[in-house]
């Protein structure tokens, strides 16, 4: 059934498939505590009863239509302060996968939402366990909208909606897992500069002026990059400014 992972080196060598669960990230985090659960273990669900987005936000998905996957990684080669690279590689992996299916208008909305045009197509949730200053495990959760056609939010979309036809979900999963694996191995192999530059180039607002809002005002700016800790660096006319997550909002027409 899950021969889809057979070409991978380590991701998907153990697959836990759940018709229903609360959240694949929660299950993967619990599984990761078991001694024999290696890096690369994958948890997949058809239906999440309490799928989570960022802290407290829920992630809605029609049963069986989309990919809800969590991968157990053990990036012991990263310092806690370098974790943003996990976000970088997964974002690039999703963008690359979508592009392999012909979806080209895909960009990363900092820090970790993937947009097709001005609608969200994928959410990423990375949760790690740290002991002292060591990362023990990181669980990378990806919710990728594949064949769902109706959304309660106007700001959401799916591959099928964007492309006008249904897709083979297993094939999407195969390519996505392979891309995550290959980018993770590149990161492990020391390609962090190139990865960071690829991430920058795929960002909404990089190298172009668009509208943002901070707590004082609406303003036009250009994204210059992302600091080592993942903060957004923008050029605002009066100089360069760094923003934390809750300090800046992307505005849409």
């Amino acid at each position: 059934m899950h021969k889809i992972f057979s070409k991978n080196l380590f991701i998907g060598k153990k697959v836990v498939y759940l018709p229903k669960c609360h959240s694949t990230n929660s299950v993967a985090t619990q599984l990761a505590e078991i001694e024999h659960v290696n890096e690369g273990t994958v948890v997949i669900a058809d239906e999440q009863l309490a799928g989570r987005g960022q802290r407290g936000n829920t992630w809605e998905s029609e049963p069986g239509k989309n990919i809800m996957m969590s991968v157990v990684l053990k990036p012991t080669f990263l310092k806690p302060s370098q974790q943003f690279f996990l976000n970088i590689i997964v974002s690039i992996a999703v963008k690359k996968t979508l592009s392999e299916f012909g979806l080209e208008n895909v960009k990363v909305k900092w820090p970790n939402d993937i947009y097709a045009g001005n609608k969200k197509i994928t959410g990423i949730l990375i949760e790690s366990t740290l002991k002292g200053s060591m990362i023990e495990t990181s669980v990378v959760g990806v919710g990728l909208n594949v064949n769902q056609l109706g959304f309660t939010s106007e700001k959401a979309t799916s591959m099928a909606l964007e492309m006008g036809n249904d897709l083979d979900k297993e094939l999407v999963l195969e390519k996505l897992s392979r891309n995550i694996e290959s980018l993770y191995l590149q990161l492990k192999g020391g390609a962090s500069e190139k990865l960071q530059s690829d991430y920058l180039k795929s960002m909404i607002g990089w190298g172009e002026r668009r509208l943002y809002r901070d707590k004082e005002e609406t303003f036009e700016a250009e994204i210059l990059g992302v600091s080592a800790l993942g903060k957004l660096r923008v050029e605002r006319g009066e100089g360069v400014k760094e923003y934390d997550l809750k300090e800046i909002e992307f505005l849409w027409e």
Binding site: E127, T129, K131
Partner: peptide, 14 residues
């Protein structure tokens, strides 16, 4: 939990 840039870290006691 320590959260930074939407990355969530469960901190274990040493």
């Amino acid at each position: 939990i320590i959260e930074a840039m939407k990355l969530f870290n469960e901190i274990e006691s040493e």
